[in-house]
């Protein structure tokens, strides 16, 4: 019986070809075109995933609308069309352009996140560094962290009344606790041997903190900021929906829903999703990778 040919993947074929073309004693050889093909593969995976997501949405809408729902469940295409009108044709979303809504949301986000970052890094560092304070300090932190974002609403309203400040407070309350926990655990995860080595070399407490703990933990710190940002983004929309900020993407979802303009709501949800992805996957993921590489925690 003849042997069946062994199946070889594209990677294996490319390597075999590179090997055949390379000089006999080379230890590192160039491989043609694999890199571009890899990018293509990732892109096609992302596109396929997107297409499946949209298909599910489409089927959902078809089924729901076939039952004769009076309002009409928006289809993907018409939602994108509407989004295009908001983005490019200057269609107003109840008095403000979508950019104004987006800008307002980002402003809420950045103010709250900046405050949360300062509080989270300082508090997290103190808790992470001082073992004795950690046991005590983690009690309130973990209690506050258990409070879901919107449960802060009465607190926010009592402190700031209706409006922007309340939304900012809610975002801050959630995000600062997430960052605190991430930063403190990052500092506590620094291998004790590095701290011992620094002590042996005579480093002071402050030097150990600034020149050993923080650099070694900085990848975890960036990761904590990333988690803080994504929880902030999530609660931002909910906070705007409820406290009546007057402008903002969350507020627009609420408004369009109240006015039964579901397609408008869907368009807002879509842009929220896109911006969130952009912040997390592109900006923060890049920062985290760059940090790990700079720190020598990852092979370059």
């Amino acid at each position: 019986m003849p042997d069946r040919p062994v199946h070889r993947s594209a990677d294996e074929r490319a390597l075999a070809q590179a090997l055949a073309e390379a000089p006999a004693n080379a230890s590192v050889i160039p491989v043609r075109s694999l890199h571009g093909r890899h990018g293509l593969k990732v892109a096609s995976q992302v596109l396929l995933g997107l297409a499946i997501g949209l298909l599910i949405w489409e089927v959902f809408a078809l089924v729901l609308n076939s039952n004769g729902s009076p309002l009409g469940f928006p289809y993907p295409l018409e939602t994108f069309e509407r989004l295009g009108e908001y983005l490019f044709a200057g269609r107003s979303l109840y008095g403000h352009s979508i950019y104004e809504h987006l800008l307002a949301s980002i402003q809420h986000l950045l103010v709250a996140f900046a405050l949360a970052m300062v509080v989270g890094i300082v508090l997290g560092s103190v808790l992470g560094y001082f073992g004795r304070i950690y046991a005590i300090g983690m009690v309130p932190v973990s209690i506050y962290q258990m409070i879901p974002g919107l449960a802060w609403l009465p607190v926010a309203i009592l402190m700031f009344g209706l409006g922007d400040d309340s939304a900012v407070f809610i975002i801050f309350a959630v995000s600062s606790m997430v960052i605190t926990i991430g930063v403190s655990s990052g500092i506590r995860m620094v291998p004790p041997v590095l701290v011992q080595a620094a002590k042996m070399m005579g480093a002071s407490g402050a030097a150990i903190f600034c020149r050993v703990l923080v650099p070694q933990a900085s990848a975890s710190i960036v990761n904590a900021l990333r988690l803080g940002m994504s929880s902030a983004w999530r609660v931002l929309i909910a906070a705007e929906m409820i406290v009546g900020t007057g402008v903002g993407l969350g507020y627009s979802i609420q408004l369009t829903r109240d006015l039964l303009d579901y397609m408008g709501s869907f368009a807002c949800i879509t842009i929220i999703c896109l911006v969130g992805l952009l912040i997390d996957r592109v900006v923060l993921a890049w920062a985290e990778r760059a940090m790990r590489q700079r720190l020598g925690l990852e092979e370059a």
């Binding site: 011992q196 042996m200 005579g202 050993v212």
Partner: peptide
């Protein structure tokens, strides 16, 4: 307390990775 007069080579790797 520890000081540089008494240098230590640890069993685990103890160089600052960054």
């Amino acid at each position: 307390k520890p000081d540089p007069h008494r240098g230590v080579v640890f069993q685990e790797y103890s160089l600052m990775p960054w």
